[in-house]
């Protein structure tokens, strides 16, 4: 028995190694049959990793390493103190059960760059001259025009999602965005109309896409603010409608008030 066990263990290790090689070969074969290149980003996606049940597919698949946390913004010294204090205040109010109103509680869309969090699933449509990104959350839509010039910053009509121009660098879609309304907030970080967001979007494999974002803003930031989001392909998922139509949160009141009388 004592001699058999190591042999059995060796056999198991060998079997396991062979299975790994076979799986890898299989994955390569499948990958080769799937759409690659710029069409590869087409389709439905969910945030990766999915952080809570119901936000995505609830699939147990876990493959590439998840992105790290988003670093604090490199705000200029005159802004960083207020930003930290306001984050602490917001956390304290949540603890007390009286969260501050924000754009979400007012039923407003997230805008850029927050919408690319993909809190709910997202659809990417690649068409000639354009990549369209649709978020289920708030029905938000971005249109990235390929190989076009962005308007000058001072001419860019302020929008929630701004103005975006893109180009393919190999199989990486590089998108530049300007013209985000100055009251659109991501993580409550202030920004000016000079804010510029560069996204480098690419498939890391057939089913996972990464988006490396870099935000610059000469008025508020001392350095580029960079982080990575990832998305997992969700084959066949059909985005749902999201019209924010019954907002029972009234920011004019000190406390969140929920309407308790039946609507007529």
């Amino acid at each position: 028995m004592t001699t058999r066990q190591p042999r059995a263990a060796r056999a198991r290790r060998l079997t396991s190694a062979l299975a790994t090689i076979a799986a890898a070969a299989g994955a390569l074969t499948v990958a080769a049959q799937e759409p690659v290149g710029i069409m590869g980003i087409n389709g439905s996606w969910e945030r990766y990793p999915n952080i809570a049940s119901g936000l995505g597919s609830d699939s147990a698949r876990v493959a590439p390493p998840a992105p790290g946390p988003i670093p604090d913004p490199p705000l200029k010294p005159q802004y960083i103190g207020e930003w930290r204090a306001s984050a602490a205040r917001a956390a304290e109010l949540i603890q007390q059960g009286v969260p501050q109103p924000d754009s979400g509680s007012a039923c407003l869309p997230q805008g850029m760059p927050g919408m690319m969090t993909a809190i709910f699933p997202m659809e990417v449509l690649v068409s000639p001259g354009q990549v369209t990104m649709i978020q289920e959350a708030f029905n938000q839509v971005r249109r990235v025009y390929l190989d076009e010039e962005l308007p000058a910053v001072e001419d860019a009509e302020p929008r929630f999602s701004g103005h975006s121009a893109g180009r393919w660098e190999g199989e990486t879609l590089v998108v530049e965005t300007i013209g985000v309304k100055d009251y659109v907030r991501f993580r409550n970080v202030p920004h000016s109309m000079s804010m510029r967001i560069v996204e480098r979007i690419r498939l890391v494999d057939r089913d996972y896409m990464e988006n490396v974002l870099t935000v610059t803003d000469p008025e508020y930031l001392t350095a580029p603010w960079t982080w990575k989001w990832m998305y997992r392909r969700w084959p066949g998922y059909k985005l749902q409608e999201y019209v924010c139509e019954d907002n029972r949160y009234d920011p004019s009141l000190e406390y969140q008030q929920l309407r308790v009388e039946p609507a007529q």
């Binding site: 956390a91 949540i94 059960g97 969260p99 924000d102 979400g104 809190i119 907030r185 993580r187 949160y249």
Partner: peptide
């Protein structure tokens, strides 16, 4: 806590 704002699409459930 990290986000400093409601983490989800609409409002916080803190109340």
């Amino acid at each position: 806590l990290v986000a400093g704002t409601p983490a989800f699409a609409h409002h916080s459930f803190a109340p």
